[in-house]
Design a protein around this nucleic acid. Structure first.
Length: 634
DNA sequence: ACGGTTGCCACT
DNA sequence: TAGTGGCAA
């Protein structure tokens, strides 16, 4: 449900930039012969010619729609070029489009705060840039207004007049305009410049909306497509919303929008104005009610986030109809493929962006053999994410088994899986300031403190995918000791690799800063626990029993966890490209003995996130796996 | 055989 | 929290 935020006092300049039929443009850049041609991008083509996921404007003029299959598109537009999405590991591979999207983001992020909203959309907060322009070089004569900006569409200005461009030029530099309108005019000029840069540097066209908030910018970015931009002056908001069908508003395209129509008789956003905030709250709850009341008035305080990268990575595939998976072997096969791709993607994210994912989630859709219309859903399951393809595959399969168990509720019926996906989420930046925090987790009394990797030595070179970043655990010294580097800082490990030189620390300054101490320690704790466990299992140290240690009840479970931990310390187990990630383990494993040595305020922080470790486990209450896996049928 | 494959968010 | 549900493109 949407939540209303207070609109900031000061007027903002917000843009929403939307790539035009993006996947098609990416393919047209790869194969310029497709330019100007009716073209669509399809994924797979064995069933009815594949599904369209992007359609060029030439093809749209023939009536080709996104919802069509390839065969249907051919019927409507026999000359259409159908380009297939690349396939890797038996599934659609969108990496080409993802990296093209990144090219665009890199350019758009240059003039202000930039938020990647999807693979082909961004929001920009251009308030500062617009203010600066207004101070230094406000638009003052129609002739000097840059060509692309002059092609803007200004909501509320007569747009079909023969004098359109002249009117727009005049609007952009009206000397008697409100301060707000002047800011928007500057925003329009900046966005026009950015769009030209995008075109010059990537060959991609895009459309944009410029307004005082995200909601309005988004609403109009697609109003004049392709390759055009639209401005929303405050003065035109009311008329615009008055006739806007509710379903066009973001968040109202689904059930909430239908309810507004069916239950309240609201057809346009303007119709909402006749309801009090209280009435809307009564109908839809406090948050949604207030949100509706505000959007009816064009109010949306949502801020543009400063984020250029996605918040999660997911890979999935559907297995429609006869393709449904009906035994665990085929599920495992596909899950392995999905996990391979996911592993590759989070590994690149780590290497290129210095980010680590913490949670692995498995989703599936399933039906039971007997019940043709079983309403029950396959539950999603998640667990801490361990790096390494083999580990992810193992854990994903365990999550699947656990989900299947819950799904079947110990009935002995057959099943079929129609979709599978794995997602890596809760992604954090690796802190740049590790060395200063390192000082807190050290000391001869804490044998567990040795495994903290020094991320300032992470190589910058993105081509070094799968390289070793932390000293492999089995190569580390086991005797605690303390040393000083040339800056006089003390480190808990004398391994040369782990004691950053001045040069390494200089490099580390280029890494992203992290806001709170908590996230830094959270991160460091991963490596700390890993080595500690390794030493325990090697009999090198005695484990100090912490306050949170196990009860009899979960002894069996804990044994399982211990076994898995031992496995983590193994170098190059199975399919691993390298065991370099042995240091990345459970946040919740941090050693209480280490915590005791920290300053009280940091201790307090840490206490909050120490919790019982939960590994993916197959809980089989009184039954075995084989009892609910039906015998494989070919 | 549902447009498939992403991705985001709020709520509990 | 992990899990569900909704929305969007």
């Amino acid at each position: 449900m949407p939540v209303a935020r207070p609109e900031p006092q000061e007027p903002r300049v917000i843009a929403h930039v939307d790539m035009d039929c993006f996947y098609v443009q990416v393919e047209q850049r790869r194969n310029p012969a497709l330019r100007g041609q009716p073209t669509a991008v399809v994924q797979y083509n064995d069933w009815k010619g594949g599904g369209l996921i992007a359609v060029s404007y030439e093809a749209r003029s023939f009536g080709v729609k996104r919802s069509m299959r390839g065969d249907e598109a051919k019927r409507v537009c026999p000359g259409i070029n159908l380009v297939q999405v690349p396939v890797a590991r038996g599934k659609a591979d969108l990496n080409l489009y993802r990296s093209a999207g990144s090219e665009v983001v890199a350019i758009l992020a240059s003039k202000g705060k930039c938020e990647r909203a999807s693979i082909d959309e961004v929001y920009l907060d251009l308030t500062d840039a617009a203010k600066q322009m207004l101070l230094q070089s406000p638009p003052d004569s129609p002739e000097e207004i840059f060509m692309e900006a002059a092609k803007s569409n200004i909501l509320g200005l007569p747009s079909d007049a023969s004098e359109k461009e002249k009117n727009v030029r005049a609007w952009l530099c009206r000397p008697d305009a409100d301060y707000e309108d002047k800011l928007l005019a500057c925003g329009a000029i900046i966005v026009a410049q950015l769009r030209v840069r995008v075109l010059e540097e990537t060959q991609f066209t895009c459309s944009a909306g410029i307004a005082h908030n995200k909601m309005l910018a988004k609403l109009v970015s697609g109003m004049h497509k392709p390759a055009q931009q639209t401005v929303v002056p405050s003065s035109s908001v009311q008329d615009f919303l008055a006739s806007l069908p509710v379903k066009k508003m973001k968040q109202l395209g689904g059930k909430l929008g239908s309810s507004l129509q069916d239950d309240l008789g609201v057809e346009t956003i303007g119709d909402l104005l006749s309801f009090t905030e209280e009435k809307l709250q009564e109908q839809y709850g406090v948050n949604t009610g207030t949100w509706l009341w505000k959007i009816a008035r064009g109010i949306s305080g949502e801020e543009v986030e400063d984020r250029l990268l996605p918040k999660s990575h997911g890979c999935g595939k559907t297995f429609p109809g006869p393709k449904a998976l009906k035994n665990s072997a085929s599920v495992k096969g596909w899950l392995d493929q999905l996990c391979e791709e996911l592993s590759e993607r989070i590994q690149s994210d780590l290497n290129q962006n210095k980010r680590i994912a913490q949670t692995l989630t498995l989703h599936a859709r399933a039906s039971k053999a007997n019940e043709r219309d079983s309403t029950k859903k396959f539950p999603s399951k998640s667990c801490p994410l361990r790096y390494g393809t083999g580990k992810i595959q193992e854990d994903a399969m365990k999550l699947f088994e656990s989900g299947l168990h819950d799904f079947l509720e110990s009935q002995n019926t057959g099943w079929s899986i129609t979709s599978l996906s794995v997602t890596a989420s809760k992604i954090f930046d690796i802190p740049s300031g590790t060395s200063s925090i390192l000082r807190y987790i050290k000391g001869p009394s804490s044998a567990a403190s040795q495994a903290i990797p020094d991320f300032s030595s992470v190589p910058e070179d993105p081509s070094l995918d799968n390289n070793v970043y932390a000293t492999p655990i089995h190569e580390e010294k086991c005797e605690p000791s303390t040393s000083e580097n040339e800056d006089g800082e003390r480190y808990s490990d004398i391994s040369a690799k782990q004691c950053p030189t001045s040069e390494e620390k200089r490099i580390s300054k280029k890494l992203p800063e992290v806001k709170g101490t908590s996230s830094i320690l959270k991160f460091l704790s991963r490596g700390q626990s890993a080595l500690h466990e390794k030493r325990k299992s090697d009999g090198l140290i005695c484990s100090p029993q912490g306050p949170g240690s196990s009860s009899e009840a979960n002894k069996a479970e804990e044994h399982n966890v211990a076994a898995q931990r031992a496995d983590r310390s193994n170098i190059n187990s199975g399919t691993e490209p390298s065991a370099s990630n042995a240091w990345m383990f459970n946040v919740e494993d941090i050693d209480p003995a280490v915590v005791e040595e920290l300053p009280p305020e940091i201790q307090r922080e840490i206490q909050g996130w120490i919790r019982p470790s939960k590994q993916p486990s197959t809980k089989r209450r009184g039954s075995t796996i084989s009892s609910y896996f039906p015998p494989a049928r070919s």
